[in-house]
Design a protein around this nucleic acid. Structure first.
Lengths: 192, 192
DNA sequence: CGTCTATTTGAATGTACTCAAAAGCGGTGG
DNA sequence: CCACCGCTTTTGAGTACATTCAAATAGACG
């Protein structure tokens, strides 16, 4: 039931069976249909979720109505809006299932209580955020210095599953280009 | 001597005089001349610094030899390479003084000892990283969805001091455009 | 099978880039 | 104190790359 969650946490901190059992009651399993939203912009992200099955994307919508994907989340990923979570301000993000998805949901209230009760989880989350920060910095740097084609190839290299699970329009949005441009880049690649 | 540091930490956690006195011996004051480097790529960033006076920039150099600025750090900023710090891997970043600068330097060894000794500092750094993450996410999103001109104006609005302290070439690099392009954008703005 | 969405392709446009050169500015040494 | 040197900023011209708009094709799903 919570195998995947435990394995994920234990990549960073080891828990006894008792400790883990103390955590699980705060996690609620939620089923999402394709295109169903976990968070809509304007709402407060007073939760965090762990993806047990399926996939989601978080994205903003600009004033022209264009979507910009910030993050994909597959099995074993954590997702939420940290800004909104920390400040209790309305979120600018939307978080939506890309396919039938199951997440383990913890409310902010429960999460803060867990941090108090189980310091290892506190440490776990700190490491989690640090890693996320590092990954984000790398991505920003790539966005500024690496051609779209190379970033596409790199993404496919690191996440070959994305190609089959995620439509091109979303990949294009994640890379910061239009679907048309990515389609052309792809064609160039098949020619080579 | 450490007034600015204390004020900075106490924006997030309150320390008694004793607690603060327990921390300061780990900080070493370092003077940097203009263009002098705190970190060169290839070195391990086994430290973190607090900027007490002056300013620095962190940047990468791509295979074409172009620089890409990731971060500016003025008075009251913390800077280092978190990735290299966490993993002990050689850094891809350069950190360089933009003017005569004074930083308060803590080695990783000392810092980890301080975390053990003073849990409040642990909490402080966690909040620090969380805020940095949130700011970075916002910047990535803006880079994808907001025109350069608007990002330039926003930067000037939030940091009017940058205009006078930082050369245009660095601002251009931070925004992810060439100096020529930013110069033209600026001209457009004066016409309007 | 039909409908809705995703992907591809084409043509015209625009935005930022490169390369080159001139003008401006600041700091240093004579 | 001024002249010079190096670096920054501006300007111009040509080019490359991604965008927009429009339309055709392909695929997915009920």
């Amino acid at each position: 039931m919570f195998d995947r969650l435990r394995k994920n946490i234990e990549k960073k901190v080891i828990l006894t069976d008792e400790e883990f059992a103390g955590i699980t009651p705060s996690f609620k399993r939620i089923q999402l249909k394709k295109k169903e939203r976990l968070l809509s912009n304007g709402q407060v992200s007073n939760f965090v979720v762990f993806v047990d099955k399926g996939s989601l994307r978080s994205y903003t919508i600009d004033e022209k109505g264009n979507e910009h994907i910030l993050q994909f989340a597959f099995e074993n990923y954590w997702i939420g809006d940290l800004y909104s979570y920390l400040t209790d301000a309305p979120s600018a993000l939307n978080i939506e299932a890309m396919e039938a998805t199951e997440v383990l949901y913890v409310s902010k209230t429960d999460m803060e209580a867990l941090y108090e009760k189980e310091p290892k989880l506190d440490r776990f989350m700190r490491l989690q955020v640090q890693n996320a920060y590092v990954a984000l910095q790398k991505r920003l740097n790539a966005a500024m210095s690496v051609p779209t084609e190379d970033r596409y190839l790199e993404l496919m290299r690191v996440h070959p599953d994305i190609l089959v699970r995620v439509p091109l329009i979303y990949i294009a949005s994640y890379l910061g280009v239009t679907p048309e441009s990515l389609s052309r880049i792809r064609r160039q690649l098949t020619v080579k």
